[in-house]
């Protein structure tokens, strides 16, 4: 017994220190996440089951009515569908615009030009989001920069009436989230060996076949990652819809924001947020097999 104890002791001594270093290295990050995300979220989840904000002088009790409201009133479901549609459309436009750009950056342009073009993709990211959205109002509003430009190019072009429309919201959101799609697609495209494209061509494949059979399937992880990164924040977005959409810009995100900032109905806002979260999770659960195959 004594012998086996001494034999085992070195491995025994190593294990606790291993665990210690794991705790030491990951601890701060998880502690931070618990304090800043998990605790507030738990509090919100609790709020969502209350009838009023739990402040002194307020009358409140535990209830399911906030969740029931979503299922009873068509208004919220319509909003949910509108938000999902917005998320889907923005992700689609980001893909249609971002993928070709990412392809050229990853496969055609080399060296310094690539860096410069990358910077042009990323620089808008560094400016304040609010400023970016307001600058869009100057471009899109009636007699704004876009209409004047078009009028100058095609005299008598007339008015587009873009400001305060659904399209304006899409334009603003695509602008805000395009870099995500370009970056994720760029990363997965640049891992595709150029020889694969050459090989496909040597076997007689034209450009479209190469794109469809080789490039798109192999860059699917990046496309999916980009779409997820865009879809999730867009369906909860409120700033772009509010500023660019005006009265047309009512989505679930703006309604939730209203509950917190102007109506001061935190419980309803919290309940709607969790329903939105549930919706996202359900969508991902449904698409799980496709997502897994893609990555």
């Amino acid at each position: 017994m004594a012998v086996s104890d001494t034999e085992r002791s070195p491995t025994r001594r190593r294990q606790p220190s291993n665990a210690k270093s794991i705790v030491g290295l990951t601890g701060p990050a998880y502690l931070w996440l618990i304090v800043t995300i998990l605790l507030p979220l738990a509090a919100m989840l609790y709020f969502s089951f209350l009838s009023d904000v739990p402040l002194p002088g307020r009358d409140w009790q535990v209830t399911l009515s906030n969740y029931a409201a979503f299922f009873q009133e068509d208004f919220y479901r319509t909003l949910m569908l509108r938000s999902l549609r917005l998320g889907f459309e923005v992700a689609l436009w980001c893909f249609l615009i971002g993928f070709p750009c990412a392809y050229v950056l990853a496969k055609t342009i080399k060296g310094r030009w690539r860096e410069a073009l990358f910077l042009m993709v990323i620089i808008p990211f560094w400016s304040n989001a609010l400023i970016r959205v307001f600058s869009w109002t100057m471009v899109l509003r009636g007699n704004g920069m876009l209409e004047r430009l078009l009028d100058w190019l095609i005299p008598g072009f007339g008015s587009l009436n873009l400001m305060f429309t659904y399209e304006a919201v899409v334009i603003g959101l695509v602008h805000s989230y395009l870099p995500y799609m370009i970056l994720t697609c760029y990363i997965s495209l640049s891992t595709i060996d150029d020889d694969l494209i050459d090989a496909a061509r040597s076997m007689g494949a034209g450009r479209l076949t190469v794109l469809r059979r080789i490039i798109l399937p192999l860059s699917m992880p990046g496309i999916v990652a980009g779409a997820v990164l865009i879809f999730v924040p867009v369906i909860g977005s409120f700033m772009e819809p509010r500023i660019l959409g005006g009265r047309e810009g009512t989505f679930l995100g703006t309604v939730i924001e209203d509950q917190f900032t102007s109506v001061f109905n935190w419980p309803l806002g919290a309940a709607l947020s969790f329903i939105l979260l549930a919706c996202v999770l359900i969508i991902f659960a449904i698409f799980q097999p496709i997502l897994r195959r893609a990555s």
């Binding site: 060996d193 020889d195 694969l196 050459d198 090989a199 496909a200 040597s202 059979r213 080789i214 399937p217 192999l218």
Partner: peptide, 11 residues
């Protein structure tokens, strides 16, 4: 054509 690293389509 046969490539140095074979260039088989991984998907």
């Amino acid at each position: 054509m046969m490539f140095q690293n074979y260039a088989l389509f991984p998907n």
